[in-house]
């Protein structure tokens, strides 16, 4: 049997009671932990041995119910899956334990996830299908069609990505990575009849996929490798493929890259902004454009650099384009 290794770790634990506390505070515990323990073991030890008033959510203890998600030094984890020794490798032996969202704390590590469920409700998180009530055969989905979900159905709705998304932190209308992944999960399902309606919801400005900042925090946070940003990209693609992309600054910003590359190989930065914003919208960028021009940061159209072997780029643009706008 392997020898049990142990190490002393200092845990700073977030405490707050919405009913009695004006501000949150932290309790510090210095504990010897073994290489076999996960964060949930530490929470249990603190509650059972030190302070019975500590509140946190736990249930399955097998990384599947998604309820014990919290943050360690800003990293979202499932308390029942995250090995303390793995976290020591990343952060050393000082760990701050926070709820997924300190803003939404009700008691200690327990948060109000209403916003999370509201976002899900927005995207119709179920299969919309006219199924016969007494079918004679099973409604089979081939393995090939099942693969189209790209494992989006592995999501356990723990909220790790949702509460790690910086765009959502700033813009509370934004639907966010978890609900986007769910929208993709159903939109990509061959049995679903509401794909286009769902795509319309995620195509709306301010709430939809266009406000994603592409920081990849969601892909990093997910404990089940759902890779929400991959699904967000897919939703962008599906919006164009379904022909419902609106003619606005966000869509033109994506399409503008193709125009530039076809002409120069490289991106014409100034033209991209003009094309995206339109001739009037572009005027609001004049203050910074002037500063950039003064400092030699604007290339004039007649000096626009071009890739060598532009004939290749042009030919590939013709032969490999798969979408029209």
């Amino acid at each position: 049997m392997d020898e049990i290794k142990s190490q002393q770790v200092t845990f700073k634990l977030f405490r707050f009671n919405q009913e009695t506390d004006y501000l949150p505070y932290y309790n510090t515990y210095v504990l010897d932990v073994t290489h076999e323990e996960v964060i949930l073991d530490v929470l249990n030890r603190i509650k059972w041995d030190h302070d019975g008033t500590l509140s946190y959510r736990r249930s399955c203890r097998h990384g599947i119910c998604g309820i014990c998600s919290i943050k360690i030094n800003g990293k979202a984890i499932l308390a029942c899956k995250a090995r303390i020794f793995d976290l020591i490798d990343v952060f050393g032996t000082d760990m701050t334990i926070d709820p997924l969202s300190t803003k939404r704390a009700i008691k200690d590590l327990i948060i109000d996830k209403e916003d999370f469920w509201d976002k899900h409700a927005q995207i119709t998180p179920f299969l919309v299908s006219d199924v016969e009530e007494n079918p004679s055969l099973e409604n089979l989905v081939s393995p090939h069609d099942a693969e189209k979900l790209l494992e989006a159905d592995y999501c356990i709705q723990c909220g790790a990505c949702h509460y790690s998304c910086p765009a959502l932190e700033i813009n509370d209308r934004f639907i966010g990575p978890a609900a986007f992944a769910a929208a993709f999960r159903f939109a990509a399902d061959v049995r679903d009849d509401a794909s286009v309606e769902r795509l319309h919801v995620v195509n709306e400005e301010a709430q939809g996929v266009w406000d994603c900042v592409k920081c990849m925090e969601c892909a990093e946070a997910c404990p089940k490798d759902v890779n929400p940003i991959e699904k967000i990209t897919k939703l962008h693609n599906m919006i164009f493929e379904a022909g419902i992309a609106k003619n606005n600054v966000a869509t033109r910003h994506a399409v503008g890259f193709a125009h530039s590359i076809e002409k120069h190989g490289l991106l014409d930065e100034g033209e991209l902004v003009r094309y995206s914003e339109g001739n009037i919208g572009v005027l609001k960028h004049m203050p910074e454009a002037f500063e950039m021009w003064k400092n030699g940061k604007i290339v004039m159209p007649w000096n626009m650099p071009k890739s060598k072997n532009m004939d290749e780029v042009k030919k590939l643009m013709q032969s490999s384009s798969t979408v029209k706008f």
Binding site: T233, H236, N237, F240, A254, F257, S320, T322, V323, F325
Partner: peptide, 8 residues
């Protein structure tokens, strides 16, 4: 561009 035309 990836959002518009992934294959390209």
């Amino acid at each position: 561009l990836q959002d518009y035309d992934d294959f390209l």
